[in-house]
Write a protein that binds this DNA or RNA. Structure first.
Lengths: 342, 342
DNA sequence: TATTATTTCGCAAACGTTTCCGTATTTTAA
DNA sequence: TTAAAATACGGAAACGTTTGCGAAATAATA
């Protein structure tokens, strides 16, 4: 790999010192317009590309931000990253992306690797296994810019972007009740997760508001393997106390539910009404019947995360990331999975 | 951001020189076991993390590889990256990920940014707009390790990983013909793309082998916006010369086709049989009717790309990446969208 | 015992930037 | 006309590693 010309060679070609050339390229006021022109044109001619590591070493910043998320095969996370990239790209920042595969050990390993300054900031969504947050707390205590989205860590005082999980789950459950459901199941990934806590709370409160009492057997915690989830849901659907409505707190459990239903003779929405947090709108409309969804503004969440970080990282003296939870509203879209047409 | 201890401070704490400490941590033979122990334990105690930029600057490598792909919201690309990450992670490599959004200008910009050595290698799948490949050729001529997958550049002499596109399309088309289709449509993204060329060739040859002649109006090139694609496909389906079978060369056009069908009273598979290159198996089974798919070994493709790169980058004196096309077989899975049960 | 090898470590250069200084030249003010 | 100030640039240090080279100290050989 021939690394092209460096600053010294460029300077020699111009019969100038490296410092002058550096300043000229960085548009310093100390350099005359005449030499700036000459330097810039010669730099273009020789296709000079500054070495990013020399620069990072000197300036102690990498123009890189790291994104840590639990899984890649998810329209929600894909859209969030698209949103992040949209704004970081405009600022010339690069994106290091890591998937923890819902494995907290892997998450710890990644976070520890990131402590050496390879990235200027981390934006993350924790794994469903994450209960011990010491690795994240340490990072934050060191002053490392860290922000959360969706699956947040409440105990770490920094900025978090979420959706109105409680309200959305409340409204979704209320919608099921209005459609006549009496026994509503709740599907979740892990009770540790901030999003399941909030969504669960919304679910319970909606039940209570309607005078319905929650049934423990209808609240099922799922695992990572799809096939296991499908079978677990299937046994739920065929159980003594089978539900007539179902709220899934994440996208992939809604898909698992559709798979489970296919293995029974249950009819949606007649026998079972389904609603889910779901980001892949195109797919939602193609399911049979079309799925009623609570859609998070994934792209916007990514954008907002990145905007905040860019402000923090590119402006001279910025305060720490404020300890606040910013909630962007989700949108309930009613489709055929929850309404029976006569 | 307090950057922790550096080598010099660690050495001072140990009353050793930085060079000795560096060698001890890198397990050099010149250092006694006794001091190695001491150094390592002190390094752990002080949580020493080597500065990656200093190291990169000195060693002229970044332990980072860049992945450039056309879109993120795609189960195929997500799985490829999962495969890449799986092996690079084991070697301590990091992943910079870029989406071109099918925009060749953006692709050029990204590639040019990458020329400065920020990554040790690039693995990419070109955008559907890419016809001028000078930016990629320049990169390769400089000796920069570059490999392609799926959407490859034939003219650039390096290693490319693909699936048996021709054979798969041939088999898929043949399957449609066997199911009684006479007028088979072909959906593609761009005629420039290596994958559409190969798949189109397989499609044509299968037609020819069955004595069917291709109809130009049945071969539609789609764009980037989903809604436009849906309408284009819908007019195709309602046209004078409407198809009775359809082969989609990419996943998202199959989904668009299902959307288009929903806007007509066409019945799948009775009126129209559909088959598609498709990576999201879970979804394929949930579509109504379930979609017959040609599934590429996405994860394996990613793994193979990364294995080759790791070999090239971690072993001392490796030859250039050989100019060859490595083909991994796709798998045809027949589902309800192509067979009529009586 | 004298010489040579071997082991173990330190000094200093190098990677390619940016920036703190210093300085020569020109311009402005007194 | 002279002193002060502004302009334009160069020298060298610094960022934190790795590594070539030299040099003690110890061990092995003659």
């Amino acid at each position: 790999m021939s690394t092209g010309v460096n600053l010294k060679e460029l300077a020699a070609e111009l019969k100038l010192s490296p410092s002058t050339v550096s300043r000229a390229l960085n548009d310093s006021y100390e350099i005359s317009e005449a030499t700036k022109k000459k330097v810039v044109s010669m730099a273009e001619k020789l296709n000079y590309q500054p070495n990013p590591f020399a620069r990072s070493l000197r300036e102690n910043k990498s123009k890189t931000i790291a994104v840590v998320m639990p899984e890649r095969m998810s329209s929600f996370f894909s859209k969030v990253i698209d949103g992040i990239e949209e704004v970081t790209h405009q600022h010339g920042y690069h994106l290091l992306i890591y998937s923890t595969h819902e494995d907290v050990e892997r998450e710890k390993k990644i976070v520890n690797l990131l402590m050496n300054g390879r990235a200027d900031a981390i934006v993350m969504s924790v794994s469903s296994q994450t209960s011990d947050i010491s690795h994240l707390a340490r990072l934050h205590e060191r002053g490392f810019p860290l922000i959360f989205f969706d699956r947040i860590c409440d105990n770490i005082p920094t900025t978090k972007f979420i959706t109105n999980d409680y309200e959305s789950a409340f409204e979704g459950t209320k919608h099921l009740i209005q459609q006549g459901c009496k026994k509503i199941a709740f599907l979740m990934l892990s009770k540790e997760l901030s999003i399941t806590k909030e969504r669960y709370r919304g679910y319970l409160d909606a039940l209570k508001a309607a005078g319905l009492s929650p049934t423990p057997s209808l609240q099922v915690t799922c695992a990572h393997e799809e096939e296991k989830n499908i079978e677990a849901i299937r046994t739920l659907l065929l159980s003594e106390d089978r539900p007539d409505g179902l709220l899934s707190s994440v996208e992939k459990l809604a898909l698992a539910t559709y798979h489970a239903v296919k293995r029974t003779d249950i009819k949606i929405p007649e026998d079972l009404k389904i609603i889910s947090f779901f980001s892949n709108l195109s797919i939602a409309g193609l399911l049979t019947p079309a799925l009623t969804t609570i859609t998070q503004p994934a792209f916007t969440i990514g954008e907002e995360c990145a905007k905040l970080l860019m402000k923090k990282l590119t402006k001279p003296r910025q305060p720490d990331l404020p300890n606040q939870v910013i909630s962007l509203p989700s949108k309930l879209t009613i489709r055929s999975s929850t309404v029976v047409y006569n």
